[in-house]
Every structure is written in C-alpha cells, then in structure tokens.
C-alpha cells in the first residue's frame, strides 16, 4: 500500500540530514514534488541548496532520513537516468578541452555500453536537444569559446538529451543574456507540459514569482514550503535570509 502512496511523488525527501565530517549542512529537510511541478529553492549562500541537490542526485550520502525518487531509491534513479543536474556556471571548468556536441553526448553516457559508443538513437537525441536550445550553429565550438548563456544552454541540452523526468538546476539564470533567459523560460513551460518535475535554485526573487508553482525556503533546514503565492512572503524571506529585510532583496518596488 505504502509504495502506491509514494508513487504519486516524483521526489519524496523525508527528514533528510547531511553532514560533512560532523559539520551539519542540512537537517530535517522535507520536500515532495509531483510531475509537472516547478519548485524554487531559495536560501543564502551556504544555506544548503547545493547540498540538497547533492543529496537528491546521490552525490553525497544522507546521514538520516529517506529519499524516494518515483517511489524508488536514489541508486535506482541513477540507473534509470531519472534525474538530470544542470550545474551552476562556477561549478564547471570552462577551459576544459571539449566541444558542445561532446558535452551534450555525456547526457547519454548512462544508457550506453561500457565503451560509450553512441548509437543512432543517441546521436538523434543529442541533435534534437541541441536544436531545442538553439545551438545548432555551435556543434563543434569548444565550451571555452561560448558565452555564459550559450554554455548554460549546452548543459541544459545535456539534461534534455538524458531524457530525465526530474531536472535539478543550480542558478539557471545567473550570468545569462536576455535571449538565453527567454529561451530557458520557454523551455520550462514545455517541460511542465511534458510532465517533468523541476527544482531550481535562484537568487533572483522575481524569477521565483514568475516560474515557480512552489517554493522551498531553506536555511540549513526548511524555513517554509508551499505554494509560492502563500509562502513567498516578506516575513518568510526575512527569516530565510537571517533578518535582512525583503526591501533590500527585492528593490524598492516590492
């Protein structure tokens, strides 16, 4: 019976804790997301946003709690290519000698054989993904020669090529041009209609209002979670950011 209940949720994280050598990075955090939901993850630097992502992808082990992805373990979610992670710009070495095509092809690695030889279907998936992010003219451009926005789109294409049902995006809007921002927001609507679940971290409060159905405010643990219209209040934001007034964060017009 219980497994049926779980299967309604794409992500079901229950009371998770993560610590690095005894230093607590995240404790008693809960999150439940259904297909087609977009959730914003908001918190200060060091509040545990990246740690939360790492726990969901299995990059760090949780010391307590339980994570179910589509009702199954993180391990089998990895095997099934269920989760795609789009790193923030600072998280990758932009001078690495690799071009757009090869980065996007990495999205297919998990479902290839041990030598990672691309099949016809892999090539097609990569082509389609690159087309969706409008980088067809840059197939063989080294990532070091791309603009910040183009690089962001490359990693988004990798997530698309992976055909994951859950997308985790770390600061998808930081350091991108207006064109990329528009393209990403259009993709978000498509993803939503395809029934994908999106969890994105952001510093930009306006983006949360614009895209996110739900918002998760964290400061080492969950400060508030729920519908954006209900939870994303000046009081909650002030608590999340350790007492800094939302006027300062939003600018005068809020």
């Amino acid at each position: 019976m219980e497994s049926i209940k779980y299967q309604n949720f794409r992500i079901d994280a229950e009371n998770i804790c993560v610590d690095y050598n005894g230093k607590v990075a995240l404790y008693d955090a809960n999150l439940r997301l259904k297909p087609g939901q977009i959730c914003g993850l908001v918190g200060m630097n060091g509040a545990g946003k990246t740690t939360f992502f790492n726990a969901l992808t299995g990059f760090v082990n949780i010391s307590k709690g339980k994570i179910r992805i589509n009702g199954e373990s993180v391990r089998s979610a990895q095997k099934d290519q269920t989760i795609a992670y789009v790193p923030q710009s600072e998280g990758i070495d932009s001078q690495f000698p690799i071009n757009v095509w090869d980065v996007v092809m990495m999205g297919r690695y998990g479902s290839m054989n041990i030598f990672r030889c691309p099949r016809e279907s892999d090539v097609q998936a990569v082509k389609d993904a690159i087309e969706r992010v409008d980088l067809t003219d840059h197939l063989s451009t080294p990532i070091g020669n791309l603009s910040g926005g183009q690089r962001k789109r490359t990693f988004l294409a990798r997530a698309i090529a992976q055909r994951a049902s859950i997308l985790l995006l770390d600061e998808p809007f930081s350091g991108v041009d207006i064109r990329t921002e528009k393209l990403i927001s259009e993709l978000f609507i498509q993803f939503k209609n395809e029934g994908k679940t999106i969890l994105l971290s952001t510093h930009d409060m306006i983006h949360v209002r614009e895209f996110c159905d739900l918002v998760l405010l964290i400061n080492k643990t969950v400060v508030a979670y729920g519908e954006t219209s209900e939870v994303f209040t000046p009081e909650n934001i002030t608590t999340t950011f350790g007492g800094i007034s939302p006027d300062f964060l939003f600018g005068p017009e809020s």
Binding site: F59, Q78, Q81, P87, G91, Y109, R158
Partner: peptide, 22 residues
C-alpha cells in the same frame, strides 16, 4: 583506453557522472 570517456567525464563533471549512475 577502455575507460577513456568515463575518465574524461570524471575529470570534467564528476557530479553528472554520479547522477547518471556511473
């Protein structure tokens, strides 16, 4: 030679490698 591509991915983006079950 066998793990050429996996090692490249490991050097480039270990987090992605882990996420897709490598």
């Amino acid at each position: 030679s066998i793990f050429r591509k996996d090692l490249m991915l490991y050097c480039f983006d270990p987090r992605h490698a882990k996420t897709v079950g490598i």
